[in-house]
């Protein structure tokens, strides 16, 4: 099972590298990181902007690449499943074959310029948190992307839904939460706010990053509540644990969908 999955993953990775999307993704982060560090006056100033960029771009790219992979790799999957390979190893291979290259491209793009420019010792922890948040977001949104891709028969619909989902989670969600907080300001809102935040992986990652960077001005409403509630390290761990759950649940759902799919 593991050997088969690894082989499937290898072919999937080779195919992904053939398209240049991933290289572009890595270069984008490399350019952004070096640009922000150079122009913004050092790593310290660049980190909050980088954090915002990661929170916007990583979910979008991971979601779209995973969703489109389902359609682009239909032929490949069909061919594999006509031979003695089970659905589970094929799914695991495809999932890891999308998630791991995305992760690698993100990490290379983020870390290479920083390391090359020399990170001050005081920023190592911050950069590490940024990297971890990006990696977790990659896993979460590539898993969700597979669910989306497996739920719609046509690429245009799947990709369209993925875009809407991204817009909802990254842009609209915090606005809606803010509106709710304002609307029911007379009531104690901490509990519902925390629940609402746990329901949005982007919010969770945002809290992780900004608690670490101690930049609560950039946190959005839910983040501010969260920092108040948990403070420092324990909040960080809870957010990371929720994100891990956000990775596992969609991955499991996608596997179930894949095992039942008619090809």
């Amino acid at each position: 099972m593991i050997g088969r999955a690894a082989k499937v993953m290898r072919y999937q990775v080779v195919d992904l590298l053939r398209g240049r999307a991933l290289v572009g993704y890595a270069l984008f982060f490399a350019a952004a990181t070096s640009g922000l560090s150079l122009l913004g006056g050092g790593t310290a100033r660049a980190l909050p902007s980088l954090a915002t960029l990661i929170l916007l771009v990583v979910p979008l790219v991971s979601l779209l690449l995973a969703t489109t992979t389902v359609y682009h790799r239909g032929d490949f999957v069909n061919l594999l499943l006509s031979h003695p390979v089970g659905r589970r190893p094929v799914f695991v291979g495809i999932h890891l074959g999308v998630t791991l290259p995305l992760t690698a491209a993100f990490l290379l793009g983020l870390l290479l310029p920083l390391v090359a420019g020399g990170i001050g010792a005081e920023h190592v922890a911050d950069v590490a948190i940024l990297a971890v948040a990006g990696v977790l977001l990659t896993g979460v949104f590539s898993s969700i992307g597979l669910v989306v891709g497996l739920s719609f028969d046509r690429l245009a619909r799947g990709a369209g839904f993925a875009l809407l989902l991204w817009l909802a989670l990254v842009v609209l969600y915090d606005g809606a939460v803010l509106f709710a907080a304002y609307r029911w300001a007379a009531y104690p809102m901490e509990g519902p706010m925390l629940a609402l935040m746990a329901l949005n992986p982007v919010d969770l990652a945002r809290v992780m990053v900004l608690v670490a960077l101690d930049a609560s001005a950039l946190m959005g409403y839910t983040g501010a509540v969260f920092q108040d509630f948990f403070g420092g390290a324990s909040g960080l761990l809870v957010a990371a644990a929720c994100l891990a759950l956000w990775m596992a649940a969609p991955a499991f759902a996608a596997m179930r969908l894949f095992e039942r799919k008619d090809l």
Binding site: L81, S82, H83, P84, V85, G86, R88, E259
Partner: peptide
């Protein structure tokens, strides 16, 4: 079987 081992012969 669901694992598809029978497809070795197919």
């Amino acid at each position: 079987d669901a694992g598809g081992a029978y497809r070795r012969d197919v």
